[in-house]
Write a protein that binds this DNA or RNA. Structure first.
Length: 769
RNA sequence: UGCCCUAUAGCUCAAUUGGCAGAGCGUCGGAUUCUGGUUCCGGAGGUUCUAGGUUCGACUCCUAGUAGGGCAACCA
């Protein structure tokens, strides 16, 4: 600790809250085995970007800790599930680049085991067969504000329950006749704990177990127990399952020994301009608003793959957005960045004109074909390879690269203007040819033959455009995709409206383009950047039908002439709504008459202030302790220490008693009030007192604690700290006075918290003059 | 109206657990460029939801509020 370098350790890589939990579990010994996570989809739909987040989370975490991640299909509902979805899920996880190895599981494989666990729950009187109708169960569950009522069948004998459950399993009852319920608490404020249903009768064919089972477990039963069966250590799910956690723990604790799995919840992903609810995606497909689950506009993994997104970019995106518990809505720009960044170094460049405008190069002889060499890669990407581009008298350029009346800053072609043909020559527009309607049909241009590409002495022009030979170019279909919805949050709709009303009618545009021959050849790749246009991917579905159709994966970033939104000028500050002036709150509000009297008395007698007085007045166990301790220590200090420090250390607010007497506590407060201990040391002592019940004096003695107030001793430390950080001293003198906190922290650390802070502060201020 | 979760830059997240409020994306400006791409450099952007309190020091602890989200399927 003496070397100055050691005081500024390399900045630690930031850890999300789940990584922190796992780190803790390992260092505290809660988990001694390897880390085992799981990804548990229900096979009832195609995986989408939200699944991708969960897949990346679970598999990456397992990878990071050299554990493993199971793939488990949560297939306990026979009515919605299908093998098709299992296949899609497995294919997409693999495509994303993750491998579950041999650890492929199905909740349906546990049906027998789960059944036996349910029997055990009945045997231990933790579950019963309820014969109420679904309607009755619902009404008797109560509401969020009123407690439910026990089922009349709740006290059936264990034997009767066992017999009934066996008969259910044997298929002797019709759907809905009985259910198995956990016996927990119909008055619980958590609705999930009001005797939740564990098993229901359902005579339905399951896609894997066929008609073997007339009863099926529910998620709340199957999920935690499947986790326990597989030895999952960390079971991650989305936020809305947080209310299920007590039930998860209840079941696992009732049926499994330690170590048990634990559930942790994080926020689901919301992405701008799209929807991810399974119901809505299904509706888009069924009502043919899109072309199927893998329509390139869909946020499904298969859709994004077909559009040309890469697995790497999706993984990168998931990494970028992180994991937290706050509801979120991720900016599309984040995804687009990840995609472009990956594609930039991955996709060779070719030229394709999407909206052709014919150009006749008047000084190029008809029939001449010059073969121009063109690199597949720009100068800044260290990859090799090139192709030949035919240059002929008639070529196409992009319609938008010509303006008859150029706007300011337009530096492409205009009458009399010049532009460079990429990999070719500089041309000048000599004449604009129009038809009888005044529509431009072609441009007559002349080539400056001294300006061939690669000629370093060649002069420079502002603009460079892509082009394709009219005679050698190949016609090809391209599909340009835009966002599926035209508002950021399609779910945000007025009463009676559907998210469909926000569908973007122009989310796809089909164009007949002309592409350079190299990219249309048999040995051409399936992914290119069309220069100045974007990244394109050969549609795999069309390719199977022997059609070459290019999907635009994403445009290039375009910083030219952004349409400025009208209200751009004054940056809208978020409304801080100071409309309602903060009311001066009465701390006594809501208190009973005797509590008010008591609070007023406490305030008067001890000069506590009404806030603290009210708090103590409503907590008799605290105020008794306070009054007793106040006999031998300053009352305000006692109150502050009780309210701010002691109380949060005690379980259930200290209502179950204190680990020491009020007199002992007073002695402790006195130690600090008399300046024997610094505030920091005092906190340390208090923690020890709560943990061990030792007296403050004993702890102070044992740990050798004593506040350092001696100025010369402190000054030495101050000098040491300042000398160790000349750069920061400089910064401080330059006006960065917030650094006083840094210096304070350094001195406090050096003295192990023993330094008298006010003395240190004044010394520091004096030294830094 | 009960219980639970959440709130830090425009967006998504950090802040070594009480000690310099930072990063990526976006945005704006400049340099480079035969892609208005890329790359490089720089700037702006903060009442850490609010109001009190504890502390030498609070995003972090205490009190009271506010706002958003979740929970009352025999779905997952």
């Amino acid at each position: 600790m003496t070397s100055p370098e050691s005081t500024s350790p390399a900045k630690r890589e930031s850890r999300n809250f789940i990584q922190q939990i796992i780190d803790n579990d390992r260092s505290s010994g809660r988990v001694t085995s390897e880390i085992i996570t799981r990804f548990p989809p229900e096979p009832n739909g195609y995986p989408h970007i939200g699944h991708a987040k969960a897949i990346c989370l679970n598999f990456s975490l397992a990878d990071e800790y050299q554990g493993r991640c199971h793939l488990r299909f949560d297939d306990t509902n026979p009515e919605t599930e299908d093998m098709e979805y299992v296949r899609a899920m497995k294919r997409d996880i693999n495509w994303l680049g993750f491998d579950w190895g041999v650890h492929e599981y199905y909740a349906s494989d546990y049906f027998e085991q789960l059944y036996q666990l349910a029997v055990r729950l009945i045997q231990t009187n933790n579950a019963f067969i309820d014969s109420q109708t679904g309607e009755e169960i619902r009404t008797n569950r109560g509401t969020v504000t009123v407690a439910g009522a026990n089922s009349p069948y709740r006290e059936r004998s264990i034997d009767e329950n066992l017999a009934l459950f066996a008969a259910m399993r044997a298929g002797e009852f019709p759907d809905g006749a009985h259910v198995l319920r956990a016996k927990i608490d119909m008055a619980s404020p958590n609705m999930l704990m009001r005797d939740p249903v564990l098993y229901r009768i359902k005579h339905a064919e399951h896609y894997r177990t066929g008609n073997d089972w007339p009863i099926y477990p529910l998620y709340d039963f199957a999920h935690p127990l499947s986790d326990a069966i597989e030895g999952i250590t960390h079971s991650l799910c989305t936020l809305e399952f947080d209310v299920h956690r007590p039930l998860y723990d209840w079941l696992v604790e009732a049926l499994f020994p330690t170590p048990r799995p634990h559930q942790y919840e994080s926020a689901r992903l919301n992405l701008d301009f799209t929807v991810t609810s399974k119901r809505k995606l299904l509706q888009l497909v069924k009502e043919r608003h899109v072309d199927g689950w893998d329509d390139p506009r869909m946020p499904t993994i298969s859709g994004m793959r077909r559009r040309g997104y890469t697995a790497e970019s999706l993984r990168r995106f998931c990494d970028m957005i992180g994991v937290a518990k706050a509801d979120n809505r991720v900016d599309m720009a984040m995804l687009e960045f990840a995609v472009r960044d990956d594609l930039n170094t991955r996709a060779p460049r070719v030229m394709c004109v999407i909206e052709p405008l014919k150009i006749v190069l008047t000084n190029v002889p008809a029939g001449s074909v010059e073969e121009l060499e063109a690199s597949y890669w720009p100068h800044d990407i260290p990859k090799e390879g090139s192709r030949v581009v035919p240059f002929t008298r008639e070529i196409y350029i992009e319609k938008s690269d010509f303006m008859e009346v150029p706007s300011k800053n337009f530096h492409r072609l205009s009458p009399g203007g010049e532009v460079r043909l990429r990999y070719g020559y500089i041309i000048r527009c000599d004449q604009v040819v129009k038809d009888s309607h005044g529509e431009i049909t072609e441009l007559l241009c002349s080539v400056d033959l001294d300006t061939k590409s690669g000629d370093t002495s060649s002069r420079k022009v502002k603009g460079t455009v892509h082009w394709v030979s009219a005679s050698h170019g190949v016609p090809v279909e391209v599909r340009l995709y835009d966002r599926l919805f035209n508002v950021a949050d399609p779910d945000d709709v007025a009463e009676g409206q559907s998210f469909l009303s926000h569908l973007n009618p122009e989310s796809v545009t089909i164009m007949q383009a002309v592409i350079e021959p190299a990219a249309a050849a048999q040995d051409a790749l399936d992914r290119y950047q069309f220069e100045r246009q974007g990244f394109f991917f050969l549609d795999p579905n069309e390719l199977e039908k022997r059609n070459r159709v290019w999907n635009r994966t994403i445009t290039l970033r375009d910083t030219w002439e952004k349409p400025k939104t009208p209200e751009m000028a004054p940056v809208q500050k978020k409304d801080s709504t100071p409309e309602t002036p903060q009311m001066v709150r009465d701390p006594l509000e809501g208190l009973g008459p005797e509590a008010i009297l008591r609070a007023e008395w406490l305030d008067r007698t001890y000069e506590l202030g009404m806030d603290d007085a009210a708090l103590l007045a409503t907590r008799p166990h605290l105020s008794a302790f306070f009054e007793e301790a106040s006999k031998s220590a300053p009352s305000i200090s006692v109150a502050n220490w009780i309210i701010n420090e002691l109380r949060p250390m005690l379980p259930s607010d200290g209502i179950d008693g204190f680990p020491f007497s009020a007199a002992q506590f007073a002695a402790f407060v006195q130690l600090q009030a008399s300046n024997t201990l610094s505030g920091r040391q005092a906190k340390e002592v208090l923690i020890e007192m709560v943990a061990s019940g030792e007296s403050a004096a004993e702890i102070v003695d044992r740990l050798g604690l004593k506040q350092i107030s001696d100025e010369s001793e402190l000054l030495a430390m101050v000098h040491e700290v300042l000398n160790a950080h000349p750069d920061r001293v400089e910064a401080y003198k330059g006006g960065k006075t917030g650094l006083i906190g840094f210096f304070m922290g350094q001195v406090m650390a050096k003295s192990s918290g023993a330094a008298n802070p006010s003395t240190v502060k004044s010394l520091l201020e004096k030294e830094l003059e």
